[in-house]
Every structure is written in structure tokens, then in C-alpha cells.
Design a protein around this nucleic acid. Sequence first.
RNA 1: GGGGGUGUGGUGGAGUGGUCAAUCACAACAGACUGUAAAUCUGUCGGCCUUUGGCCUUCGUAGGUUCGAAUCCUACCGCCCCCA
Length: 304
Amino acid sequence: MKDNHSPILIVAGPTASGKSDLAIQLARRFNGEIISADSRQVYRGMDIGTGKVTKREQKLARHWLLDVASPKRQYSVARFKRDAERAIRNITRRGKLPIICGGTGFWIDALVYGQSLPEVKPDGKLRAKLQKLSAAELFARLSHLDPARAAAIDRHNPVRLIRALEIIMTTGKPVPAVHRSSPYHLLYLGVSRPMGELKRRIEKRLDARLKAGMIAEVRRLHAMGASWKRLESFGLEYRWVARFLRGTITRNAMRDALLKDIIAYAKRQLTWWRKNGDIAWVASTTQAKTIARQIASEYATDAL
RNA sequence: GGGGGUGUGGUGGAGUGGUCAAUCACAACAGACUGUAAAUCUGUCGGCCUUUGGCCUUCGUAGGUUCGAAUCCUACCGCCCCCA
């Protein structure tokens, strides 16, 4: 853990684990600022459905990368990486501790493990064209153009196949292999809870969101120009509430399906982190505080 | 009391004589992930084994018909509907 890299605290964890609250506590304790690593909280107007921290909570600790994009436009890992790096530099320069907090594992890893993403921007036209092809056809093309990538890719996954084709067709050269080292001194916390407890929290929170005006929020987004298709692609509350608003399902069916989907999502998040040996998992607030104390001493002795 | 219907794996629900351990969906479990990542995608899912195959036990219960039954017959039990 002793190196010259600047320290970064990460608070990751599945949805409804309580990581936002913990991050705020840690920020207050260690003079930190929070960088949200959440692929849906970057969008303006998506508040209730994403569980975005309130303005009042934002006063307790400064938050970065909330509300930085229009829901009508595409925000992506690459932009996140660039924006977050800028935020980290800004925070560090002022002698404060950057705290990455979020549930989007892919984004956190892209930022924190110094992966270089291929310099190929999404090409809407090309994607639209490729979308018409079946997975088998896409795979056949990729095998022809970039056999190495084809060998490693999930041949059934159109999203992956299309991006891989986009890269090879634009650059003509294969994607470099991933290396897993970090330019930062990582203090990687994971907030976990027993599955039963997590499910209860998810359900309770879902009902609170419905009561708090989640349906109106989605209606507003659509009125402001976010297409049904777009809302569908946001997943979870935005997907299911949009279906309800279009009248394809009842309110009860919406709630049931949504609950299942959120739970499945939490499991997928856990799968992402499970294999990551850098993470120190905390299961309770007390445990988090203990770890925080350790971090405090470490941070004081070798980081600054 | 009379008539009709129905009972399938954790759930819903197919299957109506052989190719059925039983379509499918959901749940459950496991996994992938390089600019859509709350998205997208994969595998397992009765039990056991020497696991591209073999064996065993399952389709309300008990018998029966048949070379062979989740599928046909009889009785019983449960549930539903109609008539009384």
C-alpha cells in the first residue's frame, strides 16, 4: 500500500446497500468529496428512480458527476472516465480526498485500473445498420475482421459484437489487451448485506419511490423528449414505469416485475465485484466505521 | 344427492399411449462483461454415476388395461362449476 500514487477511496456496493450514506459520512470525516460512479445519476431529471442524493445531502459533502448530461443524449464510460479524472485532479489539488461512490462496476474499474479505452466513438449510423443483423451474422463478420477478438467475445451478445465491429471497422487494428494496475493508491470498500436484508431494503425503497412521485418523474422525462425507447434502455424503474404509462401493464404487474428486476440487478452487481481481490467488504455500519478508522490512520501516515 | 371439469417439478402452465425427467415462462443458483453496463448476454435447474452416455425415482392415491401410460379404465381423496 505504500506508493507515491494519490489515494482514492472507493465505496462500491449493490443497489440499496447504503453506500451513499456511508460515502457522505466518510467524506465528512476525512475531508473528502464524492464522485458519483453511477451510470444513471449523471442524467438530469432522473432523481427518484436513481436514488440520487438530495440537495440537502449534497450540502453535507460536495458531489461530482450528478446531473451532468441530458437524458436525451448518450453519456458513456469514456466520458465518465475523462470527467472523473478531472474531478480527481481538482479534489486532490485542493488537498482533499476523492471518494468514488457508485454501483456501476464497469465505470469504476475503467477509471481506477487505468484501462485505456479504444479511441473509437460510438457511430450511430453504423450501429443502426449492424443492428439489423443477427448475432450469428455479426459474429461471422467479426471473425473475419478481428479473429482474436472474435475468439474471446460472447458470440451471442449483439451489443458486444456491434461495438467490437465498430472498433475494428474504424481503426483497422485490434483492441489492446487489458492490464490491471492502478495509477492510484486504492482504498476499495465494498458495502454488502445479507441477501435477505438487501431484498427487504430494495422492496421498502421501491414503495417509497412510488410514493415519492416516481411515476410523475418518468412522465415528465417523456414529456421533455425522452422517447419510450430511450426510457426502456435506462432499465429498471424507467423501463417498467414507462411500460405502465404506455398502458401495457397494470400498476401491480409493474411493481412486481420491477422488484424482481432490481433484485436481479443487485445480484449482477455482486457478480461483477465478487472476483475483485482489492475490495474490503463491510457488512454493517459498525464494520464500516472500524474500517474507516483503519483507513484514517493509514491515510494520515502514508498518504499525505 | 345428480351432472360436468380438474389434480404435472419451488410457482404458473404445456403435454392426452412410445422419440418424456417431461415444451415454455417465472423464481432460484452460477457466470460473462474493453465507449449502450440499471444496458446486453450465457449456463444449470428430480436424484445418483465411470456424465456427448448410463441407472434410479417422479406427473393426487391405490389398483387395472397394454410389449409400453403423465397420457386409457376403475375406485378413492382434494379442488372448481352447474343443477338440486
